[in-house]
């Protein structure tokens, strides 16, 4: 798994539960280091060890933790650049949803070895959507539920999200868009260029 993703896990744990907790977790994972480098690539197994230890340490199901992490990634001020990059996807939440198909390619354009699982959005009637997340990154759909929820707040949209389960190896998130302009949302100034 790419260092950026591992680094995201690290940032989430440090900010939410404190750095001591992170040191505890990563030392028990036994990787031989305490800091992930954002620009290096790590074995998937290393990341899975950390996540398993995290789940044990917090005594919470991993899916729940990953969902919180997804929300953290979009809403924490330290990760403002990431929120901005996601907001480039569209002017409305609906446009943003449709831009998710392009997200893996966009990510690769920025960092050529950053692999994000393929996603496909299907639009049903009455504001219903379903997003299928490719199989190659376990837990990715849980992270996406958190991301989609936080982005809805960001756009000021009201949505109901549900991790429906699997279709073979693919995991499906169902999205019900109840209102696009439910709340004010956060501003997105094209020219602001987050540091």
């Amino acid at each position: 798994m790419h260092g950026l993703m591992n680094r995201a896990i690290q940032a989430f744990v440090c900010n939410t539960y404190g750095r001591d907790r992170w040191i505890e977790v990563i030392e028990r994972a036994g990787l031989g280091f305490t800091e992930f480098e954002a620009m290096l690539v790590y074995e998937d197994e290393q990341s899975q060890k950390v996540l398993a230890e995290l789940s044990r340490e917090l005594d919470r199901p991993l899916m729940e933790i990953l969902e919180d992490m997804g929300t953290f990634l979009v809403s924490h001020p330290q990760l403002e650049p990431l929120r901005r990059l996601l907001r480039f996807g569209g002017v409305t939440y609906e446009e943003f949803l449709h831009s998710l198909d392009d997200l893996p390619d966009r990510a690769r354009l920025a960092v050529s070895d950053l692999h994000i699982p393929p996603m496909e959005l299907r639009e049903h009637t009455g504001g219903q959507f379903s997003l299928s997340c490719g199989p190659d990154l376990p837990g990715f759909s849980s992270v996406m539920v958190g991301v989609l929820r936080a982005m809805a707040d960001d756009y000021g949209a009201l949505v109901i999200l549900d991790l429906q389960g699997r279709e073979g190896e693919t995991e499906i998130i169902s999205i019900t868009l109840i209102e696009t302009a439910f709340a004010e949302g956060r501003s997105f100034d094209l020219g602001a260029r987050a540091g």
């Binding site: 620009m39 990431l82 990059l85 966009r106 354009l109 920025a110 960092v111 260029r193």
Partner: peptide, 13 residues
Amino acid sequence: LYLVEAKSAAMEA
């Protein structure tokens, strides 16, 4: 604009 921001963030890392 997306690329400029994404690349700047990646470059900083």
